[in-house]
Amino acid sequence: MAKVTIDGHLIEVPDGTTILNAARMMGDQHPETMQNVPPAMCYYSKLGESGGKCRTCLVQVTKGSEKDPRPMPKLVASCRTTVMDGMEVQNKLSAQVQEARKGVVEMLLINHPLDCPVCDQAGECHLQDLGYEHGAQKTRYEFDRRTFEMENIGDKIKLHMNRCILCYRCVFTANQITDGRVHGVINRGDHAEISTFIHQAIDNDFSGNVIDVCPVGALTDKTFRFKSRVWNTKPYNAHRDCKHEKCNGNVAVWMAGNNILRVTARKDKWGEVENFICNECRFDKKELKDWIIEGPREMDRHSVNSNTQYVHLAKEKVLKPSETFAVLHPYNGDDK
């Protein structure tokens, strides 16, 4: 076990835990420290080798360990740096980290189309949340954004490369969850793109999971595209007796009235799926009779989406009118 201090809060975690996971454990145990958890756009705990790429989770290590108390010279990616006993980490407290993170958010957004009004991911987009929390209101980028042609990956998935932030999560999913890799990154630098090798269709039972792992709207479900805004649908836990050996049939169905508009995996509060689901559950079972509905799903993410979910709000105390604004607009007022 190692004792690590993150933004002044002490926690004891098993050896080999990363700083990010230690912060998440602390957030689980003490909800008031949730805000100290670094954001992660590329790290995905269910996928090996993920992380280290987006640089949004950079933190400052002000004390290396009990044995070697020297601070680390550079900011480190908290998702890939393991804790040492006696380590002291600063995230929210460090001005350097906040500055660097603001820079990363700006970099991620300069070539992002910002087409949120017509993006299906809007409302549950991690980049939206990140921009909302850390971004400046104006961009300093005055050039054409890079563009790609839209691509179909099979008949159920749409790849909208313009929105991609190259987190590589879908690549790891394609390599690790599904069989027969046809999905990867071609080209390099700022013209790198996610693609299947010469427009091949991804054709296997688990390919739909790339939609769930995508933090932005680059990979979307063609059976749901433009059907509804996500905040107008309500998520319910549901299950069915799925025959697929790797799928347990536990899903979230997103309903409007009695219609199931979309089926996704159940996501935890870090935006990660609890278990990967098969394509049959995701794309083909859209009737109420296909599912046994368990009940409304609690949204525990600080996203735009969660604010409209009645289950989440019902548990909160009744707000006074003066507090409403603060809850709906946690933005801290950096109007530069």
């Binding site: 790429k53 050039f143 630098g189």
Partner: peptide
Amino acid sequence: YRHESCGQCSPCREGTGWMEK
């Protein structure tokens, strides 16, 4: 450097292109 960036991490991928422009 813009041409040779691997495109893996965001500051280098986007920043080199921006500086070049």
